[in-house]
């Protein structure tokens, strides 16, 4: 039986960690952060969850199999590069909307999509590993 304190703190901590990981993910393009580190932080959150409650509740909370996350992450990362090919530029060239966006104006671009793909793929891989090891 895991400690009561850990389980109680877990409820707040996991939420905070996950929010922080999303912040890291979105911040990534112009400042330190990005998909990989965000995924590591998110995985830490889920690992904490798994230590406190066991692997089964984590699977239930996730709702989808981590391997599906890997698959969608891969597809998203590959697809984000293909958009540049459609417009006739080399694979993986960054495209931005609006095109004249600077650092100060908010913009959405394919690098962000790529980052989300990396995030999903890395998170899925680490979760698969952690849950697998916890269950064995």
């Amino acid at each position: 039986m895991p400690s009561f304190i850990l389980r109680a703190a877990n409820r707040i901590l996991v939420g905070l960690i996950l929010v922080f990981s999303v912040y890291l993910l979105l911040r990534g393009h112009n400042a330190p952060g990005g998909g990989f580190s965000a995924a590591l932080v998110a995985a830490t959150g889920f690992a904490l969850f798994a230590i406190a409650e066991g692997p089964q509740p984590v699977r239930q909370a996730l709702r989808i199999d981590p391997l599906v996350l890997v698959a969608w992450g891969l597809l998203l990362a590959i697809g984000s590069g293909l958009m540049a090919v459609v417009t006739g530029q080399p694979y993986l060239t960054g495209l931005w909307w609006p095109a004249d966006a600077t650092v100060d104006t908010p913009a959405v671009g394919t690098p962000l999509l790529f980052d989300v793909g990396v995030f999903l793929a890395v998170l899925g891989t680490i979760l698969t590993l952690i849950l697998h090891l916890e269950e064995s």
Partner: peptide
């Protein structure tokens, strides 16, 4: 020359598809 990436990304996309339909 865009086709140069095809032999690399096509198998990776296939891996993702195979995971989805595992």
């Amino acid at each position: 020359n865009g086709l140069l990436v095809a032999p690399i990304i096509v198998p990776f996309a296939a891996a993702a598809l195979a995971l989805l339909g595992r």
